[in-house]
Design a protein around this nucleic acid. Structure first.
Length: 466
RNA sequence: GCUCCUAUCGUCUAGUCCGGUCUAGGACGUCAGGUUCUCAUCCUGAAAACUCGGGUUCGAAUCCCGAUGGGAGCGCCA
């Protein structure tokens, strides 16, 4: 196993953690863990106007929720001396210059180039001028490379770009305000990042960063560009496609294991036919070589299925604790009888798609059933006296029952139900307990409700019929 | 407009590097049956794809060329 693997996720705190960014974080984390390396969280907050600390906190919370613990943490806004020093080095080498053009001028130039079918590259007449930062303008890297800029992508193979098409790109607003491409290069080198694993929307930034690395005398990390996460319309996932903020999924009742599983499947697949797996297995089986090249559509149906699967695999006690958050209206009842709550959770567990559906899924547990008497009738064909007779028989058998479990209740009633007709007996029994047309089975309900409540609800139903 | 990336069922994908075992496999979803007092689950089954055109070859989803489609980037954002 290699030990010098260092990966990073570098979000900018200008919004919540995006699903695409979270997926990149996951792959970086997994890759680092697999080789016993370090996973770095670097907040790219050089854009002081848009960066906000509350977003940074949200991003951290989301990563923690997913279980992606970082080993090192940095904030670019706290590293300005470093960038300044490197900026001066470039400046002293004559590798950058001050471009005084306004944004309007640059926009006009680009429009003209588009019109003339020319490549959109800024031709600055000041690239050889000796002048510092003043007024409008920006520092640009003086790109003197010729031929192709080539790098080997771990996922895509060789990628080459014509150097003259890269042009003189901006690297800083002034000596104290570096721009993205510059800060990234300095940080990746300074942090000894060994593998840059990021979205494919960064492919076109890579040649610029390569040029900068060379000019500064830095080494080159390995690159792996992930396919993009796409929306229904196959364009980059956006708000229109539903939630793009990871924490939103938490609030909607998705479990982190499902998100991790789902995001891993967006572009990667284990060698076998397994679709359901957890982080440990992902770390064990992950291979960058098995990451696909084409964009992957975010399919909420598959996420829902995975969420169901992971909820079903969950430890009941743990699930019970997580579920409490989603039924605040019953927190007192839960605190009063935690054992009962655990039984309710047990009954609901395999029926939950999201944790948030717990409320409607277990209304029967908290509210006294309120139903029309007709609902007690199996297929609307049983008359009231018959229903009352069945319920009375059930009451008699159950009141004698000592050991109260789903299977003992079933064993006590099965012969009678078989003799009288299962539907005719079990349907009114279940409705008496749940008050619902659709609900978990009567034996499970009886178990979760407990003997006293079960008998009380049966009595209530009997009075309905007489 | 320029550049780059990309292309297997509706969706995620296996297979592509090392051509034949692929009448293309799995999963989600869909549909149909079955189990079940109901719903959900569960079980069985079905429909569903190699973008197109050339070439190489005895043979191509797999190799080569071209076209087309899709995506991304082109910022004094990251």
């Amino acid at each position: 196993m290699q030990n010098n693997i260092r990966t990073r996720i570098a979000p900018s705190p200008t919004g919540a953690l995006h699903v695409g960014t979270a997926r990149s974080a996951l792959f970086n984390f997994v890759y680092a863990r697999k080789f016993g390396g370090a996973f770095i969280l670097r907040i790219e907050d050089t854009d002081t106007l848009r960066s906000r600390r509350e977003y940074e906190n949200e991003i951290k919370a989301a990563l923690e929720w997913l279980g992606l613990a970082w080993d090192e943490f940095y904030r670019q806004s706290e590293r300005t001396e470093l960038y300044e020093r490197q900026l001066h080095r470039l400046h002293d080498d004559g590798a950058m210059y001050w471009c005084p053009h306004t944004i309007e001028e640059l926009g006009a130039e680009r429009a003209a180039q588009s019109e003339a079918k020319a490549p959109p590259v800024h031709q600055c007449e000041f690239r050889d001028a000796e002048r510092g930062a003043d007024g409008d303008g920006v520092f640009r890297f003086k790109n003197t490379a010729d031929g192709d800029i080539v790098f080997d992508d771990l996922i895509r193979g060789e990628i080459r770009t014509r150097a003259d098409l890269v042009g003189d790109f901006s690297i800083a607003k002034d000596f104290k305000t570096p721009l993205y491409n510059f800060a990234v290069v300095v940080d990746d080198a300074e942090m000894n990042v060994s593998h840059v694993i990021r979205g494919e929307d960064h492919i076109s930034n890579t040649p610029k960063q390569l040029l900068l690395q060379q000019a500064l005398g830095f080494g080159r990390p390995a690159y792996a560009h992930l396919p993009l996460v796409l929306g229904r319309d196959r364009s980059k996932l956006s708000k229109r496609d539903g939630e793009t903020s990871l924490l939103e999924y938490k609030e909607q009742g998705y479990v982190p294991e499902a998100l991790v599983n789902f995001m891993a499947l967006l572009g990667w697949h284990p060698a076998g036919d397994t679709d359901v797996f957890e982080l440990d297995a992902l770390i064990r089986d992950f291979e960058l070589e098995r990451v696909g090249k084409a964009g992957a559509v975010f399919d909420i149906e598959k996420l829902n299925w995975l969420n169901r699967e992971h909820i079903r695999m969950r430890d009941v006690e743990k699930l019970a604790r997580e579920l409490e958050f989603f039924v605040p209206q019953w927190s007192d009842a839960i605190a009063a009888d935690p054992e009962r709550w655990r039984k309710i959770v047990e009954t609901a567990q395999e029926r939950l798609t999201t944790l948030a559906s717990m409320g409607e899924q277990t209304r029967w547990a908290w509210e006294t059933p309120d139903y029309d008497t007709e609902l007690l009738s199996w297929k609307g064909q049983e008359e009231r006296p018959a229903i009352a007779r069945h319920l009375t028989a059930i009451r008699e058998k159950l009141s004698l029952l000592e050991d109260w479990s789903s299977s003992s209740v079933e064993a006590a009633l099965r012969p009678y139900a078989d003799a009288e007709g299962r539907g005719a007996v079990l349907w009114p029994f279940r409705v008496a307990l749940s008050g619902e047309k659709n609900s978990p089975g009567p034996f499970e309900l009886a178990y979760a409700l407990g003997k006293d409540e079960t008998l009380a609800r049966i009595n209530h139903a009997i009075t309905h019929c007489t």
